[in-house]
């Protein structure tokens, strides 16, 4: 299937079937300056659903033609970020996640309303920081205004970007 942009459609859907199509997607999106993949997921605050976030980022990373180790890096990063938000998030707030790729990198953002008492496990936080430093190109986690937010970027090494 060849990727197409439908001018009159409210949503533009690009289906990547194989590497040749992925290349065509990249050429198209480079020209248009848009993402070739954007997945939004709202999760109820259930720790068991973090594995779904890992699953989704694996798929989006594959769009960016990442190698196995880079896909593992994305899985590790999204797990760390989601775990931090769920650790201090509100019991009745959703975890909002957005995964995007332009074919060269993967960017994941997330946010969640905070609970009354924000307490992060210091040992886990230190380990999490080490992991995020090693597996992402950029990462940020903030807790302000009653909302926890994160963002990380992973550049596909095979794309020739600087690391």
């Amino acid at each position: 299937m060849r990727p197409r942009v439908l001018d009159d459609a409210p949503l533009v859907v690009v289906v990547v079937v194989d590497r040749r199509d992925a290349t065509a997607c990249r050429a198209m999106t480079d020209q248009l300056g848009t993402h070739i993949a954007c997945v939004k997921v709202d999760l109820i605050p259930d720790p068991e659903l973090v594995r779904l976030a890992r699953l989704v980022v694996s798929g989006v990373a594959s769009v960016a033609a990442m190698g196995l180790e880079e896909v593992e890096d994305c899985r590790a990063a999204v797990d760390e970020m989601c775990s931090s938000l769920l650790e201090c998030g509100s019991d009745d707030g959703d975890l909002h996640l957005e995964f995007t790729s332009d074919g060269h990198l993967v960017e994941v953002t997330g946010q969640m309303a905070l609970g009354r008492d924000v307490q992060l496990d210091p040992i886990r936080q230190e380990l999490s920081g080490m992991i995020l430093d090693a597996v992402t190109d950029e990462h940020d986690l903030t807790f302000t205004g009653g909302v926890g937010r994160f963002r990380f970027v992973k550049v596909a090494a095979s794309r020739g970007a600087s690391r």
């Binding site: 993949a37 997945v39 709202d42 999760l43 109820i44 659903l49 779904l52």
Partner: peptide
């Protein structure tokens, strides 16, 4: 551009748990 947008309700989370497990 949105390829997929998903919101999981409590009932759906059981399904996802099963599928991912």
């Amino acid at each position: 551009m949105i390829i997929a947008s998903v919101r999981l309700a409590a009932s759906a989370s059981d399904f996802v748990r099963g599928a991912c497990n």
